[in-house]
Design a protein around this nucleic acid. Structure first.
Lengths: 228, 228
DNA sequence: CCCGGTCGTCACATCCTTGTCACGGGATCT
DNA sequence: AGATCCCGTGACAAGGATGTGACGACCGGG
């Protein structure tokens, strides 16, 4: 389940956004100004930041720049929120590295849609073609899974599942999210089906001595991680 | 570092893209319309073109077609940029020969990621005349396939298929991609036809003891590789 | 005109994948 | 501890994907 950090000095706006996002299953953090945001960044590691363009003191734009310069936070996508729908602002927002932009009389539904869109395309940062984590390598071009050169045989669906989880490593997903992302949104299959595929993947990985990479998050779903 | 040519009539958009790409180390050229683009093509030889789908006068689509028809420019990958996220446009864009497509409210990061992906894909385009992998040698000049000096007889279509797969070794292709690349994009033949040709090739290779070079990737298609 | 070679399709056989179930062991909460 | 919920696991049947042999059409050269 992804964690979203809202940075806005207007509590009302924060409330609207929180309501929309929590209803969709996100975890929501709030900060009223840049310093608070920085603090939360360190303790909570959000997956996405909703940043108001006009903040008291340092503007949101500056905060965005800062975040994008810091190697630790630069991977976290930012959606700029602005009261004005000016094109100029939009350009400037994107220039500083924001991943998307939303003008302030926005509908909750639009908000959620954008958050989802940005999250979907955020993590596969670089190539997403080749990912190696914890000694396990998945290659989307040659369509292979290998561990220290040794190849691991994986069925098509398992491949997609593993690829998705690895390109979003460290993040936990619900079964429902995995079905949407890996199977497709229209397809209907039982949620427990995910369990079975995870099991098959685990079995395949175990044979090369890679345990514990596919971790279950009780009450939520699964996560790929090389940290125990 | 690679040179990227941006063709878009909106200076602001160009600016955003330039910013994102230069920050990543690319060299950036800009053109506001098709004629300017054509001029730059000759003097600068860009490695990739970012082409707006809506251009004044001739549409970007037409320019794309032109570029893909000219033998000199056809090797340069094109990413179409569109203001509308319509699926139909996307299809049309790809049909004319664009290598990728990006809808206009895009994030700089996504832009950079796609540019990198397309560049990486188009690189092994080394149309080298002689390739030798796994003891198998294919010669595009003498049009021969040999294994340890021993000649292997291969029909024309099989030759093209083998040559394509060998010059992109390790990469898995769908049947559809193979039809486009080996048969041609306009030709319509059944996808399963690919299977039959692969089989014929396998049979020919087996006779000289070269198995497992043409590998099937379940749920995807085929791949040439000397690694098991 | 006949013949060998090439090519695209089929039909059929096989093997692989995959979605579900049912069962049971653990974990969690009261 | 007991009740409940959640997850791991093995088995299975149906459906899909791929391998394979055969066939007719087409083409160019004897």
């Amino acid at each position: 389940m992804a964690t979203i950090l809202i940075v806005d000095d207007e509590p009302d706006i924060r409330e609207v956004i929180r309501f929309a996002l929590e209803g969709t299953g996100f975890r929501v953090l709030e900060a009223g100004h840049a310093d608070e945001a920085r603090k939360l960044m360190q303790s909570e590691e959000p997956d996405l930041i909703l940043l108001d363009w006009m903040l008291p003191g340092r503007s949101g734009l500056e905060l965005a720049q800062q975040l994008k310069q810091n190697p630790k936070s630069r991977g976290i996508p930012i959606i700029m929120v602005s009261a004005r729908g000016e094109e100029e602002d939009r350009i400037r927002g994107l220039e500083t590295g924001a991943d998307d932009y939303i003008a302030k009389p926005f509908s909750p539904r639009e908000m959620v849609a954008r958050v989802n869109a940005v999250l979907r395309r955020s993590k596969p940062e670089e190539s997403s073609d080749q990912i190696e984590i914890g000694g396990l390598r998945i290659d989307n071009v040659s369509h292979r899974v290998t561990a220290e050169g040794q190849r691991i045989d994986v069925a098509p669906t398992e491949f997609r599942l593993l690829h998705f989880l690895m390109s979003h490593a460290e993040r936990a997903f619900t079964r429902s999210q995995l079905l949407d992302q890996v199977w497709g949104e229209q397809i209907y299959v039982e949620e427990r089906t995910v369990d079975v595929h995870v099991r098959r993947l685990r079995k395949a990985l175990e044979e090369t001595g890679h345990d514990n990479l596919l971790q279950t998050v009780r009450g939520v779903g699964y996560r790929f991680s090389d940290k125990p």
